[in-house]
Design a protein around this nucleic acid. Structure first.
Lengths: 239, 239
DNA sequence: CTTGACGGTATACACATGTATACACAACGA
DNA sequence: TCGTTGTGTATACATGTGTATACCGTCAAG
């Protein structure tokens, strides 16, 4: 709120150091960014990791961090909203590939939740910027970004649910319940991801707690069709 | 990001309309705000409800919304951080009284989760500003506010857990598990509260979904001590 | 009645921000 | 070869922001 006294010129001389690695706009399809565009997006991710929120980033701030002239921003984005969406697309790409990888592991079924949780948290840990922006903007002030993230999360949840169903990991629970629990789980994990990233000494605890969360959720769901009294007789029999 | 062309003077004439309802600083103890202080806090809550985030509020913006001169801000707060904490204290007061009320109801034990969830969501619904600020800042960019909210949430969770234990609502689950589940539940509900507030057509669904969440969590916890295979034989017997 | 705190106000300054306009240069297609 | 397009740059402007200083009325205590 009160820092930055530097006066700064964006390029120290005329236009030194311009390797001109550009002019492959054939790469610019489908979220594969290049040149200044990439620099700006990465600058945003850097700033976000140092605890700022995507919606609060300024055009000049971005350019400064990217080592560019403020006006270069306009060469690539119409305004800050469009920029935000591009950033979101960029990290969504990451997340999707993460989930896809996820589908290819956790063979054991007994330890499926353990493996999954381990993987997901490790993924978050190695993509702190993406995680932070997701958590922040999911409830942030921009309805646009919220919608976009919501869709993204739902897609991931659906993928996770279908995976569980396909492999019959919890065959005792009806599919729509698996979908519901998947959605809850994904949101819960995202919720905890910030703590996981920021508090290394709690990581083990958070991970185990999340596993308990998932197991209880699915085991509880197996008893969904029982009444309160039936559950009570069951537990008294178990005790 | 691009609005507001109004030139504005903070008081349209010299100093008309000053009912001078102040000078009861004897009320200014313990979060009971008065006068301009109150006006500023309420202005903040209003702005936050119209989708802004506490940390992004500006001094002048606040004063404008409160109908005060920007410098009046300094009469009450040293800086914006202190202001944020005061706002948090203000809403924490609300929340605490809400939870306390909660302890006094839900006699039925059979429908405890239903009653509780109903109450909590209704509370959120009638305090949208407090809810929004809590959700936003819980993962927001200010570590200070995050800590404060975290403490507040943990206190609420503890209270909820003790309530459940005292009344033996789920005697089949060990106390520390009740505490854990309480924490998860409170966070989950807060998580869903935004949707509950913003999407009236989904309220019923969200509420029922939350009840399922809680029930599964506790019922699942009853099976915590069982192994995977034991659970499987159990469910096959149930089918 | 004076004094001083309290809460309100106006004016001013230094700075940051979003945008607009115009310039520079490299690469490419005609 | 010449224009065009893409990408970078500098300068300028209006507006918003946090803060500093100083002025003014209202109370209540001395």
């Amino acid at each position: 709120m009160a820092e930055s006294k530097r006066t700064w010129t964006y390029s120290q001389r005329f236009s030194e150091a311009l390797p001109t690695q550009a002019h492959h706009q054939e790469l610019d399809f489908m979220n594969v960014l290049t040149g200044g565009k990439l620099k700006l997006v990465q600058a945003a991710l850097r700033l976000i990791t140092e605890s700022r929120s995507l919606t609060s980033l300024g055009l000049r701030e971005l350019a400064r961090e990217a080592g560019l002239n403020p006006n270069t921003f306009y060469r690539h984005f119409k305004n800050l909203d469009e920029f935000g969406l591009q950033v979101l697309g960029y990290i969504a790409e990451d997340m999707k590939s993460g989930v896809r990888e996820l589908r290819r592991m956790a063979e054991s079924s007994e330890q499926a939740s353990h493996d999954t949780v381990t993987f997901v948290y490790h993924y978050f840990l190695s993509n702190p910027a993406a995680t932070t922006v997701a958590v922040r903007e999911l409830h942030g002030p921009s309805p646009l970004l919220r919608r976009a993230l919501e869709t993204q999360l739902n897609a991931s949840a659906r993928e996770m649910a279908e995976d569980i169903i396909d492999r019959r990991l919890v065959s005792a629970v009806p599919p729509e319940t698996v979908h519901e629990i998947s959605g809850m789980t994904i949101r819960y994990i995202l919720f905890r991801a910030m703590d996981y990233i920021e508090k290394p000494e709690q990581r083990e605890a958070i991970q185990r707690e999340t596993e308990r969360f998932i197991n209880r959720q699915f085991r509880g769901a197996m008893l969904d069709h029982l009444s309160q009294t039936e559950v009570e007789t069951l537990t008294s029999r178990l005790a």
